[in-house]
Nucleic acid binder design. Structure first.
Length: 277
DNA sequence: TTCGTCCTGGTA
DNA sequence: TACCAGGACGAA
């Protein structure tokens, strides 16, 4: 599932391949992926636009266009944005191909998404996207120990896991990196934030940052469909401590990793390293 | 704050 | 054949 390390890995891979290129006659195989404006306006509006640069906020990928417009892409759970040459039979996503963006540098951008949770927007210069506007500071680009402390002070009754999944709190974390971060911090997913000591808040901050850094260094996590800009999987799944390791031994203490459901999401933790306290 | 919904491939 | 995975959003 694309979270911040996966989305950022895709962005870094795509940037040198797409920057300064012109989009030529995009094709939309699944119009439902376009959330704004209409599918027709989307393809017409992109045609001929130059990709001036790339960006990311939380799990949203941003392509800054020459006219001041922005192409916004959310990969959902299974989306992949792969750049390559049309002659490569491995590319294109097969039957799950949702959109194709041919570029004038002979490269083509393929958007495939088996479960159709991915979304596309084309924003005019003067338009803002509600969901982008509501995003909290990015965990990687903007979070600081002081900021986390301040934000937690306003949410003392929240449970840790649902709060960390809330993109309006701080953005970029999803189910995998929340579970892994809480394990590293030695904190139970259902701990109330108001019960955290200053030392635990600091541990949490460092755990999230270190987990994200390692995820980035490994090129992301590929438990299912995630692929980078060149269609290759990441390696972080081999380094996971708790996620999807139910029944296996904790590498630190030997206790059996448990699975429960928190905030409607499969949640993994070590009952010994992460006491409910 | 929590739950249901969207969606389909993979698994039991 | 039924159910589960889950990011984001809207309803309760």
């Amino acid at each position: 599932m694309p979270e911040m390390p996966e989305v950022e890995t895709v962005r870094r891979g795509l940037a040198p391949l797409v920057e300064s290129a012109l989009i030529r006659k995009p094709l939309l195989y699944y119009p439902g992926a376009v959330k704004h404006p209409s599918a027709g306006e989307f393809t017409r509006g992109l045609d001929g636009q130059k990709i001036a640069g790339t960006g990311r906020k939380g799990k949203y990928l941003l392509f800054y266009l020459g006219a001041g417009d922005t192409l916004v892409v959310h990969l959902g759970m299974t989306g992949a944005l792969v750049a390559g040459f049309p002659s490569d039979p491995e590319l294109g996503g097969g039957k799950h191909l949702r959109a194709v963006f041919p570029l004038d540098n002979d490269c083509t951008l393929y958007f495939s998404d088996p479960r159709k949770f991915g979304k596309l927007w084309l924003l005019k210069k003067e338009e803002t996207l509600d969901c982008l506007y509501r995003l909290g500071p990015d965990w990687w680009e903007e979070a600081t120990p002081l900021l986390l402390e301040e934000k937690l002070a306003g949410r003392k009754k929240s449970r840790l896991k649902p709060l960390l999944l809330d993109q309006s709190f701080l953005s970029g974390l999803g189910n995998i990196y929340v579970d892994e971060s809480l394990y590293r911090a030695g904190l139970h997913p259902e701990r109330r934030t108001g019960t955290l000591t200053a030392e635990e808040v600091d541990k949490l901050y460092r755990a999230v940052r270190n987990t994200l850094r390692e995820g980035l260094d490994s090129g992301g996590t590929s438990t299912q469909n995630y692929r980078n800009a060149r269609g290759e999987p990441g390696n972080f799944q081999d380094k996971l401590s708790v996620y999807r390791r139910e029944g296996y031994r904790c590498r630190r203490c030997g206790a059996v990793i448990e699975r429960c459901v928190v905030a409607g999401r499969g949640t993994y933790c070590c009952p010994s390293c992460q006491p409910i306290a």
